[in-house]
Amino acid sequence: MSTENSIIKTAKQTIELESQAILNLSSLVTADFAEAVKVIYNSKGRVIITGIGKSAIIGNKIVATLNSTGTPAVFMHAADAIHGDLGLILKDDVVVCLSKSGNTPEIKVVVPLIKRANNKMIAITGNTNSFLAQHADYVLNAYVEKEACPNNLAPTTSTTAQLVIGDALAVCLLELRGFSSNDFAKYHPGGALGKKLYLRVEDISSVNQKPVVNGTASIKEVIVEITEKMLGVTAVVDNNEIIGIITDGDLRRMLTKVDDFSKLTAKDIMGANPKRIQANAMAIEALEVMEANDISQLLVEADGKYAGVVHLHDLIKEGII
Rank of each mutant, 00 (worst) to 15 (best):
K61F: 00
K44T: 14
L90A: 15
T69V: 05
I52K: 06
N67Y: 11
G45P: 01
A81M: 12
V63W: 02
T65Q: 03
S99C: 09
G59M: 02
A79L: 13
V63M: 11
D85R: 01
A78I: 04
K100S: 11
N60K: 15
G53W: 03
V94D: 08
I62Q: 05
G53H: 02
L66D: 02
H77I: 06
P72T: 01
A78C: 08
T71M: 05
I49G: 13
H83N: 09
L66C: 05
G53S: 05
P105G: 12
G59S: 10
E106W: 14
G84K: 01
K44M: 13
C97V: 15
T69S: 00
G84N: 07
K44L: 15
D85E: 12
G70C: 03
C97Q: 04
P72Y: 02
V96Q: 10
I52S: 06
V94N: 06
D93F: 12
V96N: 09
L98G: 12
T104K: 14
H83E: 07
G87S: 11
V63N: 02
N42C: 08
S99P: 14
S101F: 15
A81I: 06
A78L: 07
A79V: 12
I62T: 05
T50Y: 02
P105V: 07
P72E: 06
G59C: 06
L98S: 10
D80T: 03
V63K: 10
I48T: 10
I48N: 09
D92A: 11
G59V: 02
V63F: 01
G59Q: 09
T65E: 05
V47Q: 00
D85H: 07
A64K: 03
V74R: 07
V47Y: 02
A81W: 11
V74G: 01
S55Q: 12
T104D: 13
I49E: 09
I48S: 09
V47N: 00
A73L: 07
A64W: 02
I48G: 11
I57E: 10
I62R: 01
V74F: 05
D93L: 13
R46Q: 13
G53D: 09
V94C: 05
L98V: 13
